[in-house]
Design a protein around this nucleic acid. Structure first.
Lengths: 215, 215
DNA sequence: ATTATCTATAGATCTATAGATAATGC
DNA sequence: ATTATCTATAGATCTATAGATAATGC
């Protein structure tokens, strides 16, 4: 390890981690096209060659950013499902989990979409990462619905809809910053799931009857 | 009018229209950050000052691009609703209309989302345009549902969901290019509307019973 | 010898404008 | 005088790399 980090220096973490964090921050704030070498250097407190040494290219760094944020987001998605609880409780937890990931300052949903929409042609690795993360997200949602409600008809199509609605809720929230509207949208997703499940399993629909928390 | 356009010159349309078209094309292909002055000049066959003369700034041109595409998209959305037909036919028409706007090479839905997500701070006019177009789109969808089914409970929330699902379908299609999956998603949106409406008005659900067209 | 950084710089963009030119309409 | 364009260019980025430097591990 070089630069013995004179104990009092204000940046003790190794450069690679600082650069990756700067990439995550910048991509969340201003999208992949705002993640320029000079801004990265400013944030991470390094000079350009350090970035090329650790990540090979700007595209390489973006790939690491996408992988990191995708992993973290899938973990959030999985963690928002308390195993073993009844469906009404699981839906409440899901709504809270979706809200948390949409309000997460790392903006995982927005970041992944902005990489997808950015227009610059990205490497095949990045394209593949995006497809993989959405595929996995759909699986997690479908599994969660099955875990709660047993066999449900067209569960994959339902999971597609849920993922799409969560993405759309994130987009609308980042444009409007209306928390109440966000809450209502997420609540509507939960009701959609419940209605669909009830249509298949003739459940009673306890979700809608639980007392609402205050905004 | 200058440059008498020597009859045989291959660009008879006035410069402003050519520049706007180049902006629409480039924004659709590579997002707002790919809409650079030099690429615009190349496409439109003009030099930089012509752009600044007609639009004041790059941001001014982007504003015109957003307005143009927003108008065209809202027209498409409105046109996909044949007035006076029964609900099952209206839903079929809506599915076809959504598919057409998602497959439109001008990529209106993608373009509007990529401006929103682009990260560069856009002018207040552009932000306002985006909010206006989505607000109007929700209204159009809600009106169309009311026109078909009369008073429906929570029609605004339903319209929100429909808009979100159409956006999500467009995003997934532009990533996966899977027409069959697109068709299935759009069909599922129509069924969602029908289920919701049936839940309110106790309708019979003729949409799902119409013969499917072949893919 | 390997790992991690720096200094310095090349070369390719990018946005925007000053000032000239040319045609049309008054 | 107004409208629409051009030539030419300033000045600010941006990406990327060559080559030097310094510490560590063998």
């Amino acid at each position: 390890m070089p630069r013995p980090a004179l104990k009092s220096t204000p940046r003790p973490e190794p450069g690679r981690a600082r650069i990756l964090q700067a990439g995550l921050d910048l991509a969340a704030e201003s999208g992949p096209s705002g993640m320029t070498i000079s801004r990265l250097c400013q944030r991470a407190g390094v000079k350009p060659p350090a970035i090329y040494y650790h990540f090979g290219s700007k595209e390489g760094l973006l790939g690491a950013v996408v992988e990191t944020v995708a992993e973290a987001w899938l973990d959030q998605l999985e963690a928002s499902q308390p195993a073993g609880s009844v469906i009404a409780q699981r839906l409440r937890a899901a709504v809270d989990g979706w809200q948390a990931m949409i309000e997460d300052p790392a903006r995982p949903i927005k970041l992944l979409l902005s990489v997808q929409l950015d227009g610059a042609e990205h490497s095949a690795e990045i394209e593949a990462s995006l497809r993989r993360v959405y595929e996995r997200a759909r699986q997690l949602i479908a599994e969660s619905i099955r875990a709660a409600a047993g066999e449900v008809s067209e569960v994959d199509a339902l999971a597609d809809q849920v993922l799409g609605l969560v993405q759309a809720a994130a987009l609308a929230f980042h444009l409007e910053s209306d928390r109440k509207h966000l809450r209502a949208r997420l609540h509507a997703i939960a009701q959609l799931i419940e209605t669909h499940v009830a249509g298949t399993t003739l459940d009673t629909g306890a979700y809608a009857e639980l007392p609402r928390e205050k905004e």
